[in-house]
Amino acid sequence: MEKNKFIELENLGNKRPFALPENYFDDFAAQMEKTVAEMSVSEQPQQRIKPWMYGVAASIIGAIFMVQIFISENKKKETLISETYETYVLSQVSENSIIDYYLTSENE
């Protein structure tokens, strides 16, 4: 055989010079089925959370926040009302009556 003969593409043909591990394609398909089954299981809980659920959750948080603001505002109003009432009562009592009250209670 001539050592320096050029390699002709036609003579080489198109057989691939590559090998594969034994049962590669059967094993690959089985592995893919397993991977996809695992992915389906792990994806399921996420799929249960629908986009509209985020809206509902935000509304509930908003409502709780609003209720808290309402309660604290009411408390403030009650305090203000009681303070205003005391000031009103005291304004109706004369100064002499107050002095008498203190003197009487001291003597007692």
Partner: peptide, 12 residues
């Protein structure tokens, strides 16, 4: 997993 000869190597 390469099982080509010298000519195949040269083609690659």
């Amino acid at each position: 997993y390469f099982d080509g000869d010298e000519a195949q190597k040269k083609l690659q």
